[in-house]
Amino acid sequence: MNEIFGIPLPALLGQLMLGLVNGSFYALLSLGLAVIFGMLHIINFAHGALYMMGAMFSWLAMVYLGIGYWRSLLLVPLFVGAIGIVIERFLLQWIYKLDPLYGLLLTFGVALIIGGGFRYVFGSSGQPYSIPPELGGAVDLGFMFLPKYRMWVIVASLTICFATWFMIEKTRLGAYLRAGTENPGLTQAFGINVPVMVMLTYAFGTALAAFAGVLAAPTTQVSPLMSSNMIITVFAVVVIGGMGSIMGSIITGLGLGVIEGLTKVFYAQASSTVVFIVMVIVLMVRPAGLFGKEK
């Protein structure tokens, strides 16, 4: 009973856990994209750059300001959120009335500028960011030793994801957001300041990306290039889940992380492609994505 389809159970469960860790990042990032798309109808190509900034700023804060991991986890998203406000006020707000394609191009340009700027100043070599001492070591789960930090990544991102879901689907503020997403003109005619809400939504989405960045810093080499692989997968996740669905993006993010992890066990060569294979299949069957609504 220690094998399933000829695969040792510990290996299977181990990859499942690691898949969940990756899936947590996918969920956080695609959630931010979904929130932004719902309200702004902009496909935020700058998301990867904002994620990278989250990690880079925590590294900079540690090295130059002595600000540790826990404070970064709070301060960096706030700071990047403020950068999000600047991007929205100075750039995005002028193109809402244009075709969504312009938003995609504009944010892609923003991503290139941010990425290029960081490479120019910091080069492309990776910097180490150490795991906070409280989360060092590993837990023996019986079938594997799971580093505490990775467990924390799953817990923290799921908490943030479900808190976001709850806020949007179950609260008064969320009702404003849903109303503003569905019919911005009428919602504003009820006395709700929709332009400010749109701005704060973008800031919130960017803060989510930065949060994922801070969370990722101790698990990887922090560098201006760190987002390039991640973000392509995340866009595939968003396409699979369907743009704009909150719960859809969370579930799809986690699910694809797990699928990726399991593929590593069964056929490792395909693990980096499996997400795109799923994407092709989903697009053939449901062009609007698993949780998307057909227009």
Binding site: R172, A175, Y176, A179, E182, L186
Partner: peptide, 20 residues
């Protein structure tokens, strides 16, 4: 509004409580 503008993403009560 003429088209009534009831939000499909909100329940009846949320629609009622929406306008500040």
């Amino acid at each position: 509004p003429e088209e009534r503008g009831i939000y499909s993403s909100l329940t009846t009560e949320e629609n009622l409580l929406l306008p500040p």
